[in-house]
Amino acid sequence: MNPLENALPAPHTRASLYAALDSYLDALRRRDPSAVRWAPRVYNTENNVALMVGDGLWGTIVDFGTYDLRFADPARGQVGWFGTVKEPLEESAITIRLGVDAEGRIEEVETLVVRQSDSGIKFENPRFEDKPIMNEIVPPERRVPRERMISLADGYFDTLQLNDGTLFTKFHPDCNRVENGVQTTNNPEFAKFIPVAGLGCEAQFRLGNYRYDDRLRARRYPLVDEERGLVLAAAFIDHSGRLGEYRLTDGRVVNSPLRRPHTFYLFELFKIQDGMIWQIEANFITVPYHMPSPWDAWQRR
């Protein structure tokens, strides 16, 4: 081992990772994969399926929308982006995660596109708006260590899995969540269709509303933006469909909305400061029940 290794500058900066992201997005917009600076070995997936570079969205993209939420992990060479993408028939929410090697070449591409035309569970009238809190730099005294940030995000999934009112994470009282472009907390308009959407993050979970979420599996935390207090997670939510009626913690009896075997594949971004979750942004799609992650094999390489 080089005794001076710890004194060497990190191969990545936020600026260099954002430059790699911008270069990739520009090439994708122009449908020109040859314009990307690729690593010798590349792993590329779209909607949880491994694809050859140049397939999938590369052949159908028209343009991107204006929404631009980006974040980076210089320590791990990871950069992520939430935005929207326009194809001939619709504009869709999109999340992209890139892995960049020490030479600045892209070696990982993980893309999730929420096409409403493919969605069995639609989120109507999405609004993709900037959320200042997601871009704010967390003052050093309000940050928590990387491992604790991941633990809080993982605790969110523990809370969601077989949700019975027990909390395994901490929420700020003003926490909100946006899913596929729709705010699903503290939203009186959405509550007209899904009553629990009128509550905040913690209140929803204390109610035990999500009892039908059987498994939060294949959890990954590939990117932690310590400066901005952001953790990007990828996972699956499995629903066995067996649960019918169940009782909330306030005594009401409700029916599960999912009565068939079903799985969501998701990207979820958590804003963390003061040891609490303040904001959540998620994109997810339906995939075949118990579908495995193609990233498991890549991570074991």
Rank of each mutant, 00 (worst) to 15 (best):
A7G: 05
A19T: 09
L25I: 02
P33S: 07
N44M: 11
E46G: 06
M52L: 14
I61V: 15
I61F: 12
V62W: 05
Y67E: 10
G77Y: 06
Q78T: 06
T84K: 01
V85Q: 05
K86V: 14
I96Y: 05
I96T: 13
R97G: 08
D101H: 14
E103Y: 14
G104R: 08
I106F: 10
E110V: 07
V113E: 08
S117Y: 06
S119K: 04
E124S: 05
F128N: 10
E129P: 00
E141W: 02
V144P: 05
V144K: 00
F157W: 10
L162Y: 09
T166F: 09
L167W: 12
F168H: 15
V182Q: 05
T185R: 02
P195N: 00
A197T: 05
A203H: 13
F205H: 14
L207S: 12
G208H: 10
R211L: 08
R211N: 03
D225P: 14
V231K: 06
L232D: 15
G241M: 11
R247Q: 15
T249L: 08
G251A: 05
S256H: 00
L258I: 15
R259S: 02
R259E: 01
R260F: 10
T263L: 03
E268Q: 12
E268F: 03
L269S: 12
K271N: 09
I285G: 11
Y289D: 11
Y289A: 02
H290I: 06
P292L: 10
